[in-house]
Structures are given as structure tokens and as C-alpha cells.
């Protein structure tokens, strides 16, 4: 296990190993997402309060969870990079930022679309919407900081420091926004994520979609990380061999 983990720390081995994992991961993801979405959209009974509209929750809730999870993951890899100087860890952290930002944007968009019929307006300063918006700001900050540096190494270390600062602040920000929200409008009790109240025919498809989205996230992360590896290791012999191999393949086709 530890051996496997260490091997992923080498850019070349990360590349060749993920080559083998990607097809499997893709199939599992397609099956999970396909069944889960079809089930959630067409085969679960409508909510007695919100009608068909609650079907948005099948994507909204996992997106909102993943928005936070991706940030935590980015911070972990940043710490890994700062402490052990593992270059792949930084490449993964770099890949996390744009994916996390787009996931957060979708969580916001689906949240507002859900809000129109439920709250009667597309945006309210609800605690969750607000903290998701702040989450998006944090991602944008990381991306902006990375792109401001010319040197890959300085940019990587600066982003690692910033994401660690962000992850320390995140619980405080979330707590403050929750507190602010109860002060200004009283807690909104229209929360869909309390699964305790939901029957199995609602949460089983949610489970499928959730893991499907996790699979998609991993695929996107791996693809971006592989590109980053190719770019940074372009002077290595194995990358040249790989490109030549590619050339032959396209020559045959």
C-alpha cells in the first residue's frame, strides 16, 4: 500500500499507472452516473412538498459537498508538497483549483435554479449559498495567485501556503456566515440534505449519483494532472518516447 502510494509520487509512474486505472474508473463512473441520474430523474416519487423540483437536489447536494471536499483535498496535497517536496502533489493541487471552481459555480447555479420555485427568488442570502459563493472566491484567489507567478516553483509554494491559510479560515468563515444568517433572517428550514427524513428510494439514487460524481471528479483530476506532468517533464526521455509512440499510432490510423 505504502509502496503504491510512493510510486504515485513519481511523475512517470503516476502517468503509467493512471493509464491503467482510467478505463476502469471511466466505466464505473458512467454506470454509476447513468443509473443514478435516470433513477433520480424518472423513477423516484416526487417530493410531497416541492414536487418534481426537488430532483435538482440530486446534483446540487453532491456538487456543494464536493466544492468543500475539493478544497480540503487541495490543501492536503499542498501540505504534502510543502512538507515532502513531492512535485506530483503540487500538480494535483494545481489541477484541483479549476475543477473545484467549476464545481462550486455549478453548485451555485443549481442552488439558485432550485431557489426560484422554492423561495420565489433566484438568490437569497442563505447561509449555504453565501458560503458557497465565498468558496468560489477562495478558488478564484488561488487560480489568480498561481497565474501571477512566472516561476513554477514559487507559484506552487505560494499557492500551497495560501490554500493552507484558506483551509484554516474555512471553518471560521462558514461558522460566521451561519451565525450572520440566523441574525439576519432566521434559519431557512428548507434543507434537503437531512437524509434521515428521506426514504430509501430517494437516497439510494442519491448515493449512486454521489459516487458517480466523485468518479468524474477523479477522472478530471487525473487528466489535468497528467497534462501537467507532460508539460513539466517535457525534457525527460520517457515523454519523448511517449510522444513518438503517439506519432506511430496516429500514423497507423
Amino acid at each position: 500500500m505504502w509502496q503504491w502510494f510512493l510510486q504515485l509520487g513519481s511523475p512517470r509512474l503516476f502517468y503509467s499507472k493512471t493509464d491503467r486505472y482510467l478505463p476502469w474508473l471511466s466505466w464505473i463512473t458512467v454506470i454509476l452516473l447513468g443509473t443514478g441520474l435516470a433513477w433520480g430523474l424518472a423513477f423516484t416519487p416526487p417530493d410531497y412538498q416541492m414536487g418534481e423540483n426537488y430532483r435538482i437536489a440530486y446534483i446540487h447536494v453532491p456538487m456543494a459537498t464536493l466544492a468543500m471536499g475539493c478544497y480540503a483535498m487541495m490543501a492536503c496535497f499542498s501540505a504534502g508538497y510543502l512538507i515532502w517536496k513531492i512535485k506530483v502533489a503540487d500538480m494535483i493541487a494545481k489541477a484541483c483549483a479549476p475543477i473545484g471552481a467549476s464545481i462550486t459555480a455549478v453548485a451555485l447555479a443549481t442552488g439558485s435554479l432550485w431557489g426560484i420555485p422554492t423561495w420565489g427568488t433566484w438568490w437569497i442570502w442563505d447561509a449555504r449559498l453565501t458560503s458557497t459563493l465565498i468558496m468560489l472566491f477562495l478558488y478564484v484567489g488561488i487560480i489568480a495567485l498561481r497565474s501571477a507567478f512566472d516561476s513554477i516553483d514559487s507559484g506552487a509554494r505560494a499557492c500551497a501556503v495560501l490554500s493552507l491559510v484558506g483551509v484554516v479560515n474555512l471553518p471560521i468563515i462558514k461558522y460566521s456566515v451561519d451565525w450572520w444568517n440566523t441574525l439576519h433572517q432566521g434559519a431557512s428550514n428548507l434543507s434537503l440534505s437531512d437524509t434521515a427524513a428521506n426514504p430509501p428510494e430517494v437516497w439510494i439514487p442519491a448515493f449512486f449519483v454521489g459516487f458517480g460524481i466523485l468518479g468524474f471528479f477523479l477522472i478530471a483530476l487525473i487528466l489535468r494532472t497528467r497534462n501537467e506532468i507532460l508539460l513539466r517533464e517535457r525534457r525527460a526521455q520517457w515523454v519523448s518516447d511517449l510522444v513518438e509512440g503517439n506519432q506511430k499510432e496516429s500514423g497507423h490510423a
Binding site: V140, L145, V165, V177, W180
Partner: peptide, 20 residues
Amino acid sequence: LLLAVLILPLYIPVLVFGTG
């Protein structure tokens, strides 16, 4: 402006509790 993008989100808790 980069500085603003980086640190203004981190200022939110202080703002919230200060005005609170």
C-alpha cells in the same frame, strides 16, 4: 488587485462579527 482577491474573502468573519 490580486491582493484584494486573495485576502478579502478571509476578512469576512471579522466583518460579520464586528458589525454583528
